[in-house]
């Protein structure tokens, strides 16, 4: 079977992710596409640089797939995240979830992107006309461990 959770330095295509979850049992395929935004809080971004702890990031993406399977047993998920230099409007992340019925695909897709922002070791650096900065906008951490992992 093709790997369905991966990090790449190449540009990514929606079709390549969607085809991994396309199947006869599905009545819905929800896709989330995260792109590079030009303005954040009024400040103009020239380009972004993404960095990952690749082996762990892929492991954590697979974990998100497992969590989705627990919550929505009929869902199939595929996720790719790009790293390196990305220009405005480039695709940074693609999530595809297929389910028999639409509601689960929306919910599981939303769950996946929120979990990425909690447990997957990927960072972005914003480059502006007058500087650059690594962004750490994670919602919460508990003594060195992401909140939801502490209880496992």
């Amino acid at each position: 079977m093709n790997e369905r959770f991966w990090i790449t330095e190449e540009s990514v295509r929606v079709d390549d992710v969607v085809c991994l979850v396309t199947r006869r049992e599905a009545g819905a395929i929800n896709t989330f596409i995260g792109t590079v935004r030009e303005f954040t809080n009024g400040k103009k971004t020239l380009f972004l640089e993404y960095q990952a702890y690749k082996s762990m990031a892929e492991k954590k993406l697979r974990q998100i797939g497992d969590e989705i399977k627990q919550k929505w047993p009929e869902a199939e998920t595929a996720i790719v995240h790009r790293v390196g230099r990305l220009d405005i409007s480039d695709i940074a992340v693609i999530i595809a979830v297929s389910t028999p019925h639409r509601n689960d695909s929306y919910e599981a897709s939303r769950y996946a992107i929120e979990r990425i922002k909690e447990i997957v070791p990927i960072w972005k650096k914003e480059h502006w006309e007058d500087g650059e900065e690594w962004i750490g906008n994670q919602k919460q951490t508990l003594q060195g461990v992401p909140a939801r992992e502490e209880s496992e």
């Binding site: 995260g34 993404y50 990952a52 702890y53 082996s55 762990m56 990031a57 492991k59 995240h81 940074a92 992340v93 992107i113 990425i116 922002k117 909690e118 447990i119 997957v120 070791p121 990927i122 960072w123 972005k124 690594w134 962004i135 750490g136 906008n137 994670q138 951490t141 003594q143 060195g144 461990v145 992401p146 992992e149 502490e150």
Partner: peptide
Amino acid sequence: EEFVTKETIIQKNDTIAFIPPVSGG
């Protein structure tokens, strides 16, 4: 490659990664 608490004791040959607040997506 697994998150640990600050009390965890390092073993021989462990790889320790420091993970700043993440910002993927």
